[in-house]
């Protein structure tokens, strides 16, 4: 049975009609799929079927270890959203609920190859000299989370040094324990900076720049 209802599928098709360039969804699962791995693979396959501009590659986290390492993935289900290149945009766990909007945002953004960040933010991001890893922990029921995920993904698109992950907290309890995730959205940058809640672009940028200096 399809995950996307007919109504949602039609809406998605309509949104994806506007795609400019090609998009590749690289989906990591494993031979004996965990329940959410299966859901995630099915979701991505259904999405790919909504537009001729979207390609999908399903890989095995164990058998295709080299590829997983190449993408620097450490857990599944994982999805890389690529455009002309790999911009460092990752989804760990199923992007369901409100996060479905973040997935559609990532697809349309990499397809166009441009973000909506302000010129000032883009300029500051060019000055980064070290890798920055952003993890945004979310739940499907959090209406404030997509704003943060999308902001982080936009920064990843603009800077080759930034990798940005959406992490569905409900699917990775060990990470909730590791990072003390008791609230969403919660953002962890380079393991050293963490903050809760949705923040404006300028404040998010400050955290990114601060993390690079640590």
């Amino acid at each position: 049975m399809a995950l996307l209802s007919e109504k949602v599928r039609q809406e998605v098709e309509h949104i994806l009609e506007g795609l400019k360039g090609g998009v590749k969804l690289v989906v990591f699962t494993q031979e004996f799929e965990c329940p959410t791995c299966e859901d995630n693979r099915m979701l991505m396959e259904e999405l790919a079927a909504c537009s001729s501009k979207i390609q999908i590659e399903v890989l095995d986290f164990v058998r295709d270890k080299e590829k997983a390492e190449l993408y620097k993935l450490d857990k599944i289900p994982a999805t890389v959203v690529e455009g002309k290149e790999d911009y460092g945009i990752r989804f760990y766990g199923v992007p369901g609920g409100y996060e479905f909007a973040s997935l559609l945002h990532a697809i349309t953004m990499v397809s166009s190859g441009s973000s909506t960040l302000s010129p000032k933010t883009k300029e500051q991001l060019k000055r980064l000299s070290k890798p920055v890893h952003i993890q945004v922990f979310v739940t499907h029921t959090c209406p404030y989370c997509p704003e943060v995920v999308q902001l982080a993904h936009e920064m990843a698109l603009e800077s080759p040094l930034i990798t940005s992950d959406m992490v569905n907290a409900a699917e990775f309890p060990h990470l909730n324990h590791k990072y003390d995730i008791f609230v969403v959205p919660k953002t962890i940058i380079n393991e050293t900076i963490q903050f809760a809640g949705a923040v404006p672009e300028s404040e998010f940028l400050k955290h990114v720049l601060k993390a690079e200096k640590r």
Binding site: C142, A170, K186, A196
Partner: peptide
């Protein structure tokens, strides 16, 4: 707040 105190059960319930 954010360390166990929450004002949004809808958002944070899955973390508990």
């Amino acid at each position: 707040i954010g360390r166990g105190v929450s004002y949004c059960a809808t958002c944070d319930a899955p973390l508990f």
